[in-house]
Amino acid sequence: MFQKQMDVRMIFGILLAHVLLFFTFQEKSVFWYIFTASMLFLITYSILQEEMDDQQPFRIYIIYGVISGVSLFGLFYLGNILLHMIDLPLKGSVAKLYKQMSPTQIWQYIVLFLIIIPGEEIFWRGFILKRFLGRIAILPSILLSTLLYTSVNIYSGSSHLILASIVAGLVWSSLYVWKKSIPLLIVSHLVFDLFLLVLFPLS
């Protein structure tokens, strides 16, 4: 009975994420307002349902977070170069990753780094992936959670964002399985977005 209840909670969380993200991507003019509210709602739901893992000391999750975030950006950077070199139809896809939804104002950067990024890791890895890991094998858990993480970005209408979600989702899900630390994932995600959106935007 308890396991069944856990399933219902996860399914409800996934449906909730889809409904919230569907409305988030509908109107670009209020995107940041709705996205912020949606992530706050998902954070609240997650922490009420599941205890967040933090099995690494501060020094370790900072080091691994920074290294993994920079490495993931490096992977995107190399992918962008490769797409330009072979002149595929997807050329420039990495550069267009957040083009449509990129923050343009200071407050948008603040909510991105303080609410949206932590919220994505808390919900998709700290809640959804953790639930899968409690029921099925590691590899299917990583693949299913990544698929679900990617699925909500379908509403953006951007194939570039979908492709990026698959790659990043696989990396962060694998990192969670390895280190069991949500703070580590948040640092990794923060560093990745800092490089991608602020320090070294790709072209």
Rank of each mutant, 00 (worst) to 15 (best):
K4R: 13
Q5F: 10
Q5Y: 12
M6H: 09
D7L: 10
R9A: 05
M10N: 01
I14T: 02
L15M: 05
L15R: 00
L16Q: 07
L20N: 06
L21Q: 10
F23Q: 06
F25D: 08
Q26Y: 08
E27H: 12
E27T: 15
S29Q: 12
V30D: 02
F31N: 14
Y33H: 01
Y33G: 03
I34W: 14
I34T: 10
I34K: 10
F35Q: 14
T36R: 05
T36H: 03
A37R: 01
M39K: 14
L40Q: 01
F41D: 00
F41T: 15
I43S: 07
S46I: 08
S46A: 14
S46C: 02
I47K: 00
L48K: 09
L48F: 09
L48I: 04
Q49A: 14
E50L: 08
M52G: 06
Q55S: 11
R59E: 15
I60N: 11
I62E: 02
I63S: 11
I63N: 04
Y64F: 15
V66P: 02
I67W: 00
I67N: 06
S68M: 10
S68W: 01
G69L: 04
S71C: 04
G74N: 01
L75T: 03
F76M: 10
Y77N: 05
L78D: 03
I81M: 10
H84L: 07
M85A: 13
I86P: 09
I86N: 05
I86F: 14
L88Y: 10
L88D: 04
L88W: 13
G92C: 13
S93N: 10
V94S: 09
K96Q: 10
K96H: 03
Y98G: 01
Y98L: 14
K99G: 11
K99F: 02
Q100Y: 04
M101G: 09
S102I: 12
S102E: 13
W107L: 12
Y109V: 08
I110K: 02
V111H: 00
V111T: 15
F113E: 08
I115F: 00
I115T: 09
I117Y: 03
G119P: 06
G119Q: 03
E121Q: 12
E121D: 04
I122A: 07
F123V: 04
F123G: 11
F123I: 04
W124N: 09
W124K: 11
G126I: 03
F127Y: 13
F127D: 00
I128S: 06
K130Y: 06
F132P: 03
F132Q: 03
L133I: 02
L133R: 03
I138S: 07
I138Q: 05
I138L: 05
P140D: 01
I142W: 06
L143N: 01
L143T: 00
L143C: 12
L148G: 06
Y149S: 10
V152S: 00
N153F: 10
Y155K: 13
G157W: 12
S158R: 11
S158C: 07
S159F: 15
H160A: 15
A164N: 13
S165R: 11
S165L: 06
I166P: 05
I166Q: 11
G169E: 09
L170F: 13
V171M: 01
S173R: 05
V177G: 02
I182Y: 03
L185A: 12
I186K: 07
S188R: 02
S188K: 04
H189V: 02
L190P: 01
D193H: 14
L196C: 08
L196V: 05
V198I: 15
L199S: 08
F200A: 13
P201W: 06
